[in-house]
Amino acid sequence: MSVPDRDAARRQLAGLARWRPAEIAFWVAVLAAYALFPQRAALIAEVAVIALFALSLDLVLGYAGILTLGHAAFFGWGAYVAGIAASRGWEDPTLGLLLGGGTAGVLGLLGAPLVLRGGDLTRLMVTLGLATVLHELANRFTGLTGGADGLQGMVVGPLLGMFEFDLEGHVGAAYALAVLFLAFLLLRRIALSPFGWSLRAIRANPLRAAALGIPLRRRLVAAYTIGAALAGVAGALLAQVTQFVSLDVLSFQRSADGLLVLLIGGVGWLYGGLVGAVVFKLMQDLLSSLTPQYWQFWIGALLVVLVLLGRERPRAWIARLRRPAEGAAP
């Protein structure tokens, strides 16, 4: 081995973790959007929630390769836990966030062995089943959840004990963006860590990953659990920012929206969820103002057309802007 080779290797590996100008520009643009459109604070908060949900789904679907039709189970769980906590006198938003995320993570950990028990078909069935069961439970236990009327009477205290949530939603939007950014930093680290690479290895070639000695099951359970916890955080965030929880946090539509966001932005890279969420929300607003009743048709048409065009395409456009050796990061 020559010393230059070693240095080149070190540089290449270190380069994977470096912040690229485009990444920094992206987050600056997010900040700018918040500063420039104060009257759209509610929309910005909503986009942040969708983006966080999509990120958590991408960890499960894109990085770990676990097919799921019911990721809303964890989102809705987190929303109801934070909502119920806030309506029973636990007003601190940070506490609600941790409770929602933590319990959703436990749920994911308990569900993972069932989800991972079979092939793709089994995974679809179990994930969909879990979300449907939770939806039915929330519908049934009206005393706790408010049932079809939604959860009323949430009182969310000031953020960090200092910032009261205002009616215009400025604090809410800032809060949502801050949580999104923190979660993104965490996921970015995870994606670049040896753990993240072992997930990529498992998805790309489980046979080889096992032959390298990577314990597949344990890695997938870990990814599923983290994904569940983050989805719970996203749900809790939605509950706190809107101060309301309705049954649709657990709906199939919610899970499908997450899939569509990733389809738009690209599966298996973190900015896919972020970019997808922005495009998705803007489009949803546009479509539902054009055809308020039937935007679902256009959502469906978009899914079909994007798949037929090829899922890799949007990502390929962006990848072309980057250097090929860095194609797999972050």
């Binding site: 290449q12 270190a14 973790a17 670049l192 040896p194 753990f195 993240g196 390298l212 000695g213 990577i214």
Partner: peptide, 15 residues
């Protein structure tokens, strides 16, 4: 990284 038992780590980057 797997052989060095680092692959459970999720904080420090691979390199």
């Amino acid at each position: 990284a797997r052989r060095m038992e680092l692959d459970g780590g999720w904080w420090r980057p691979l390199g």
